[in-house]
Computed example of a mutant assay.
Amino acid sequence: MDVVLGLTPDGDADAEEVERLASRLRGELRGLDLDALRPFAGDVSPEGAKAVDPVTVGAVVLALSASGGVLPALVETLRDWLGRQSARHRVSVTIDGDTIELEWASADERRELVEAFVRRHGTDTE
């Protein structure tokens, strides 16, 4: 399964800060059990994926194995990363044209949104 991630930094972030943010996020993503992590190029997006907004930076495509545990681990990593940031950055997650934007929200709101998204894209174990 291919997942497109896009980072939309807080409007006050300068170019140097944006690059640091994107680099740190990619570093955390490399700690996951991914099949691949590659830069997003608009003409090579996964089938059905929306184009990345021009203000989105550091967009990457992740290839996840079919096992059901990788997507929840990815989303939890993104939630944790966002929770540690001092500014209001957003991360978009797109699978088969379905996008969820994660940003600062209450823990309960984030959990409900993420759980619904993961359920929609969970793998069939039958």
Rank of each mutant, 00 (worst) to 15 (best):
E101A: 07
L21N: 11
R24T: 08
A41V: 02
P46S: 07
L5T: 00
P46A: 07
E19G: 03
T99N: 02
L7R: 04
L29C: 11
T123F: 12
R111T: 02
V3P: 00
G6M: 03
L113D: 01
G11T: 08
R38N: 05
D33K: 13
E19V: 02
G69Q: 09
D80G: 09
R84V: 01
D14A: 04
D43M: 08
D80V: 06
V70K: 14
G48H: 02
R120K: 12
E109L: 10
L102M: 04
R20L: 13
R110K: 08
E19W: 08
G27I: 01
V61A: 09
Q85I: 01
L113I: 01
V60Q: 14
A59I: 04
P39H: 08
D43R: 13
S86I: 02
A87W: 14
A63F: 05
P54G: 13
R30S: 14
D12T: 11
A22F: 01
T123G: 14
G83S: 03
D124Y: 06
D12L: 13
R20N: 11
A73C: 05
E115R: 03
T99I: 04
V52T: 10
A63K: 11
G31K: 12
L21D: 07
R90S: 09
L5W: 00
D53G: 04
A73Y: 08
R38V: 03
K50Q: 09
G97H: 09
E28K: 12
W81M: 07
V3Q: 00
M1D: 04
D80T: 07
H89M: 08
R79N: 10
D108E: 13
T125L: 15
W104D: 08
H121G: 11
D80Q: 10
E17L: 13
E28S: 10
D108I: 05
P9F: 05
A13Y: 14
V60H: 15
G69N: 11
R90H: 12
E109D: 09
T125N: 15
L71Q: 09
L32K: 13
R110I: 00
P9Y: 06
V61K: 07
R88W: 13
A36N: 11
D53L: 06
D108W: 12
A41H: 08
R24W: 13
E28F: 11
V57H: 15
T56Q: 13
R88P: 05
